[in-house]
């Protein structure tokens, strides 16, 4: 049984790789999207809203297949791992754009007015005033989305990415011990997400003790 656990645990790398890449890439790509939603140009705002809503309206599994088979159809050979990272980054981008937007909306208008009245440049205003405050609002939301992402990454097994769930499924088939094996893999997911949840809660309560954003 130890051998089986060891075999499954080897999938942790791929699972974490998909999760961390999607979290990072999505988190970065979402920044211009969130800013575009505050643009003066209605077309830009509508366009971004459209993309965000479209991505979120379709199940992640369907997106995964669309990307994987879609790119193959276009003659672009993409490894299952690459396709999974691309898909989840794309989905995370849309969710993060929405999270950032909510965070920006929570920031009181007075904050930006005060920065402007002090003569801070737009860049400085974002850097010193807006972003730090927005981050404190969206941090916990991002952490819980990250945990969701970790679990969603199991879907990558369906296109053949050899991660935790894929390895568990193959072992279950070989040994016929499905219940035990999936219980083990469940515990592994729990152990992976627990630290993230704990850290995020601690950071959040520490910041909350000091100040609250209106």
């Amino acid at each position: 049984m130890l051998g089986v656990v060891g075999y499954i645990a080897l999938g942790i790398g791929a699972t974490l790789l998909i999760t961390a890449s999607a979290f990072t890439i999505g988190g970065i790509l979402a920044i211009p999207l969130a800013l575009a939603q505050r643009s003066r140009f209605a077309i830009l705002r509508l366009l971004v809203r459209g993309v965000v809503n479209l991505v979120r309206a379709v199940p992640p599994l369907v997106w995964l297949f669309l990307v994987f088979f879609g790119f193959a159809e276009l003659g672009l050979r993409m490894s299952p791992l690459m396709a999974a990272i691309a898909t989840f980054s794309f989905i995370a981008m849309s969710y993060f754009a929405e999270i950032y937007r909510a965070g920006l909306a929570a920031l009181s208008r007075g904050q930006e007015e005060a920065s402007a009245a002090l003569g801070l440049s737009t860049v400085d205003s974002y850097r010193f005033i807006v972003v730090p405050q927005v981050f404190r609002v969206v941090g916990p939301m991002m952490a819980s989305y990250g945990i969701g992402l970790l679990k969603d990454s199991a879907l990558a097994s369906t296109i053949g990415v050899v991660e935790l769930t894929f390895r568990a499924a193959s072992q279950a088939q070989q040994t016929g011990q499905g219940l035990t094996i999936f219980a083990i893999v469940g515990i592994i997911y729990l152990l992976l997400s627990l630290p993230l949840a704990i850290v995020s809660r601690q950071v959040d309560s520490r910041l909350r003790a000091r100040f609250s954003v209106a």
């Binding site: 007075g110 904050q111 007015e113 005060a114 009245a117 010193f128 730090p132 405050q133 954003v213 209106a214």
Partner: peptide, 17 residues
């Protein structure tokens, strides 16, 4: 202009962080 003018708001608008 803004460099030459200081402003105090009704709602203070201090930076809470």
């Amino acid at each position: 202009i803004r460099r030459s003018v200081g402003m105090v708001f009704q709602s203070f608008n201090l930076f809470p962080h």
